[in-house]
């Protein structure tokens, strides 16, 4: 398998406080990693560095054989898409959110494609016109996730996206992520505290006090 992303001696610190220390990781294209560790250990920070939402203090991040610094951050984030733990939906309706990825690419929304994505995660076409206040937590999370994949990224970074979801919603998201990873070849890295998700992981990483360990 070809390597999609490589982190070499990555450090991150805020003022004098070290958050991440000497992170080394190679992520092959098409793989699915599960990332766990205690709260405050630096998991989200690591994902945000990978997503170019914050900048590492030192070390190298290579994506698709090119150093991170050689990419325009905007174009990079379209390939390495970061999903937040508690996403905010913007605008008034679901359509406002799902049209956004098209707007930033100066395209009009492909409604068929959007409806197909909605239906894949168990939401109907009517959801498009729904007000965002009317959505349940599970529906919000699914809409937010669809925002990230309408234009398929090479890598999807998921920050505890199933936390707070009921079992039925978790199941929908799991199946959808498997589909993206297996059928659409999207490389995924998912942070979780969920024991079932951790037990089911094929490739498991753990961050403890800013240090990364490969468990599986």
């Amino acid at each position: 398998m070809t390597t999609l992303m490589q982190l070499q001696h990555v450090n991150y610190q805020v003022d004098d406080k070290k958050i991440l220390t000497d992170i080394n990781l190679t992520i092959p294209a098409g793989s699915h990693y599960t990332l766990t560790g205690p709260s405050g250990s630096g998991k989200s920070t690591l994902l945000r560095i990978m997503a170019a939402m914050i900048s590492k203090t030192s070390g190298d991040l290579i994506f698709d054989d090119q150093p991170l610094e050689s990419y325009d951050p905007i174009m990079y984030r379209r390939q390495v898409s970061y999903c937040f733990q508690q996403p905010t939906l913007f605008g008034a309706t679901v359509a406002d959110n799902l049209a956004f990825p098209y707007q930033i690419r100066k395209q009009t929304m492909d409604t068929d494609h959007v409806v197909e994505a909605l239906e894949y995660v168990g939401l109907s076409a009517e959801t498009l016109t729904q007000k965002i206040e009317a959505l349940s937590g599970g529906e919000r999370q699914r809409v937010a996730l669809i925002r990230n994949i309408l234009f398929l990224p090479k890598m999807l970074l998921l920050d505890e996206v199933t936390a707070g979801l009921d079992e039925a919603n978790k199941q929908i998201v799991h199946e959808w992520l498997r589909h993206l990873n297996v059928d659409r070849h999207v490389t995924t890295v998912m942070i979780t505290h969920d024991t079932t998700e951790i037990a089911a992981a094929d490739q498991l990483l753990q961050v403890t006090a800013g240090q990364l360990e490969v468990l599986k």
Binding site: A51, R77, R78, S81, F84, T88, F100, I104, R147, N148
Partner: peptide, 20 residues
């Protein structure tokens, strides 16, 4: 702040993330 961060994470330019 959170809304702006999410727009950036989706690959928005700083203009698109800030226009509203």
């Amino acid at each position: 702040r959170q809304g702006v961060l999410e727009r950036l994470a989706l690959g928005a330019s700083v203009m698109d993330a800030s226009i509203a």
